[in-house]
Amino acid sequence: MSEETARDGGFDDWLDAIEEGEGYYFECADGHGGLPPCRVCPACGSTDLEQTDLPASGAVDTFTVVNVAAPQFADDTPYVTAVADFGKVRLTGVLRGMDHDDVEVGTTVGVGVEETETTGERVLAFRPR
């Protein structure tokens, strides 16, 4: 990340934490999950939110193999984008480290931060575990 680019407060801090293996989300008293920046529970409006550890693994709810990408991912194609269930929250990331034909709904994945092949930008990445 270039020094001239302002960080996205909350989000980039969260990516840093995931990179360190210390991912988290926010949970309200009613058990709703939220992702940063998160001042208010998006489900119920509560401002009483507790930072909670993200589970070490999640399960793929759905995925797609993208062949036609936006310019920022042009050299990454074909790549898998997946939505994975981590309990109170779902995350969307690029799924790497397995043959595209082997990905299934239900595949167990861990989450980390890697770089895109096209621009080297940080990207949320799932790998099977």
Binding site: T62, F63, V66, V68, T81
Partner: peptide, 19 residues
């Protein structure tokens, strides 16, 4: 949470179709 993970407009509907 979506575009930076490579979600395109067709990709988003593909996620819905698979589900």
């Amino acid at each position: 949470y979506e575009i930076r993970s490579g979600v395109t407009f067709p990709g988003a509907y593909a996620l819905m179709a698979r589900a």
